[in-house]
């Protein structure tokens, strides 16, 4: 309770501020409508009108909640208006990309740890590439693949993989290097082969690092997928939902898609958190 109370208070404060901002930002439109109809609004009417507009500048929290509820449960899951359907499209591309990126990252990290040439050649570039806005390439990847006749899940998955690749690589290299001299010497004195050192010492001690970077990576690959859905032509997925909402001024739709994406991200990170807890607990590494 002592931990939940401050969070709930801050959340409540955010909602109050949000309502205030919704009234303030939507007031102009309501005033204009009233002026056109030659009526003046009492404060009470004004507030009520600002919170029930069809296309508000800033939708009130309950409007977003209703839009979200309607999108998630009000439609058939196969309907094109259903956020579950769009979310599934986004999720499948995210997971495919996440899997590819994680596998590639781990493989390369293993190579880097075991080969000094690879370490010195690749690692500086991997670190430098962190400072480059890779997401900006996303629309190009989509278009290039589309011109080669590949559309759908694969191009988005490649962007997602690219984004989740670097956190995993960097975290995994760090993790595989955590065993210190003493532990490595002990393995040596037991006459352990390189494979045994890897499976029984390096890999287990890298797991906490791996999970930390997996959390970053899954969030990054979701962002990558959503941005990959932005370029023209995409009709499915949460990113396309954002874009069509912004074209047609459907603010409630934008906010619902945004919140759906946020929920998806939170669920994915939490899922990895649960797996982390179970694994580390089972290995006796839990703190």
């Amino acid at each position: 309770m002592t931990r939940a109370l401050p969070v709930l208070t801050v959340l409540l404060a955010i909602i109050v501020v949000w309502y205030g901002a919704a009234v303030w930002m939507n007031a102009q439109w309501a005033q204009d409508q009233a002026a056109r109809a030659d009526t003046t609004l009492t404060t009470d009417e004004l507030i009520r009108q600002t919170l029930t507009q069809e296309r508000p500048v800033l939708p009130a929290p309950h409007q977003v909640a209703m839009g979200l509820w309607d999108g998630l449960f009000g439609q058939k899951f196969t309907s094109k208006r259903s956020l579950v359907w769009h979310g599934w499209i986004t999720l499948s591309a995210t997971m495919a990309g996440f899997a590819i990126g994680t596998l590639a990252g781990i493989t390369l990290a293993v190579g880097i740890v075991h080969s000094r040439t690879m370490d010195q050649s690749v690692m500086p570039w991997a670190v430098a590439s962190q400072s480059i806005p890779i997401l900006a390439i996303a629309p190009m990847v989509i278009v290039v693949f589309a011109s080669a006749g590949v559309t759908g899940l694969l191009p988005k998955a490649i962007i997602a993989a690219w984004l989740s690749f670097f956190p995993v690589l960097v975290g995994m290299v760090k993790g595989l290097r955590t065993p210190d001299r003493m532990q490595l010497d002990l393995m040596q004195s037991w006459n352990a082969s390189a494979a045994q050192v890897f499976w029984r010492l390096r890999l287990p001690s890298s797991l906490p690092y791996l999970f930390a970077s997996l959390k970053v990576a899954v969030a990054a690959s979701l962002v990558g997928t959503i941005v990959g859905e932005l370029p023209a032509g995409a009709t499915a997925g949460l990113g396309a939902r954002l874009l069509s909402g912004s074209y047609y001024g459907q603010t409630v739709q934008i906010w619902s898609a945004l919140f759906a994406a946020a929920i998806l991200a939170a669920l994915l990170v939490m899922l990895i958190g649960v797996v982390e807890k179970l694994t580390l607990h089972r290995m006796g590494l839990a703190r």
Partner: peptide, 16 residues
């Protein structure tokens, strides 16, 4: 929590 969310999605709203 917010630092892990796809905040880029807020772009269309702010552009409006």
């Amino acid at each position: 929590f917010v630092a892990a969310l796809p905040i880029v999605g807020i772009a269309p709203i702010l552009v409006m």
